[in-house]
Computed example of a mutant assay.
Amino acid sequence: MQRRLAGYDRALYRSVARLPTPRLDEPLRRVSDFADYSKPWLLIAAALALLGGPRGRRAAVTGLAAVGTASFVVNQPMKRAGETRRPDREALGVPKPRWVRMPTSGSFPSGHSASAAAFAVAVGEVLPPLRVPLRAAAAVVSFSRVYTGVHYPSDVLVGVAVGALSGSIAARVARLMTAGED
C-alpha cells in the first residue's frame, strides 16, 4: 500500500513538473523563496498588530502562535522521525528555471505549507473577512513547493493538515482566553 501511494505521489509530482507554464516559473520561485522563515506571515501579523486595533492584535498573536506551533511540530518530531529524502527534481523532470535552493532538511512534511495553513486558518477565524485571501495565499505558497521541485505533493498535503489543525487549535484557545472581552 505504501509503495503504491509513493508511486501516485511521484506521478502527481511529475505531472506538475510537466505543466507547460513557463510564465509561472519566476513568480512561483519568488513566492517560494519569500515564504522562507514565514516572512509573509510575520509581515501580515505586523500590519494587523499596528493597524487592526484590538482584534487585529489578537489575530496577529493567534496567527503567530499557530505558526510557531506548526513549525515546531513539523520541524522537530515529524521531520526527525521520517528523514525522508527530497525529490530528485532533475531525474523527475522539473525544469531548471523553476528551481529554488534545495533545503537540507528532510522532505516530509512541508514546513512552508504548515506555516502558511496555520496562519491562514488562525487569522481567518479571528478576522473572517481575511479568511479567503489568506487561504488563497497559503494555497499558492503550498503549490509553489511542489512546482519548484522541493516537495512531493504528500509532503505539502500533510504540512497543510498539520498547519490547519494548529491554526484551528490556536483560534480556539484565543477564543477561550478572550471570552467576554468583545
Score class of each variant (00 low, 15 high):
3 R>P: 01
4 R>M: 06
5 L>Y: 14
6 A>I: 08
7 G>N: 12
8 Y>I: 09
8 Y>K: 04
10 R>C: 01
11 A>G: 11
11 A>K: 07
13 Y>Q: 07
13 Y>L: 11
14 R>G: 09
20 P>M: 11
20 P>E: 14
21 T>K: 02
23 R>S: 09
24 L>I: 04
25 D>S: 12
25 D>C: 03
27 P>R: 12
27 P>H: 14
27 P>Q: 12
27 P>C: 13
27 P>K: 10
28 L>V: 05
28 L>A: 05
28 L>E: 05
29 R>D: 06
30 R>W: 15
30 R>K: 14
31 V>T: 13
34 F>A: 14
35 A>Y: 12
37 Y>C: 12
39 K>M: 15
39 K>P: 00
44 I>V: 15
45 A>H: 06
45 A>C: 08
46 A>Y: 04
47 A>W: 09
47 A>M: 10
48 L>E: 08
48 L>N: 02
49 A>R: 09
50 L>G: 13
50 L>P: 00
52 G>P: 06
53 G>L: 09
53 G>R: 11
56 G>N: 01
58 R>D: 09
60 A>Q: 06
60 A>E: 02
61 V>K: 03
63 G>Q: 00
67 V>M: 01
68 G>L: 07
70 A>S: 10
70 A>P: 01
71 S>T: 14
72 F>Y: 12
72 F>L: 05
75 N>V: 07
75 N>A: 03
76 Q>G: 01
77 P>C: 08
79 K>E: 00
79 K>C: 03
80 R>G: 06
81 A>F: 11
82 G>I: 07
82 G>F: 15
83 E>Y: 03
84 T>Q: 08
84 T>A: 07
88 D>R: 07
90 E>N: 09
90 E>Q: 15
91 A>E: 13
91 A>F: 05
92 L>V: 10
93 G>E: 01
93 G>W: 02
94 V>I: 10
94 V>P: 11
95 P>Y: 11
99 W>M: 08
101 R>M: 07
102 M>Q: 03
104 T>Y: 00
104 T>C: 00
105 S>H: 12
105 S>V: 11
106 G>Y: 08
107 S>K: 02
108 F>P: 03
110 S>Q: 02
112 H>M: 01
113 S>G: 04
114 A>E: 01
114 A>Q: 09
118 A>T: 02
118 A>Q: 06
120 A>E: 03
123 V>I: 02
123 V>H: 00
123 V>W: 01
125 E>W: 02
127 L>C: 01
127 L>Q: 00
128 P>Q: 02
129 P>L: 08
129 P>W: 04
132 V>C: 05
134 L>F: 09
134 L>S: 10
137 A>Y: 12
137 A>D: 06
138 A>N: 02
138 A>E: 06
140 V>D: 11
143 F>I: 08
143 F>A: 15
144 S>D: 05
146 V>Q: 04
147 Y>D: 01
148 T>C: 09
149 G>K: 00
150 V>L: 01
152 Y>N: 11
153 P>K: 10
154 S>G: 08
155 D>R: 00
155 D>I: 07
155 D>T: 00
156 V>K: 04
157 L>P: 05
158 V>H: 00
158 V>D: 01
161 A>V: 13
162 V>M: 07
168 S>F: 09
168 S>Y: 10
169 I>R: 06
171 A>V: 09
171 A>D: 03
171 A>F: 05
173 V>A: 04
173 V>L: 13
174 A>N: 08
175 R>C: 03
176 L>Y: 13
177 M>S: 10
177 M>C: 13
178 T>A: 15
179 A>L: 15
180 G>F: 14
181 E>R: 13
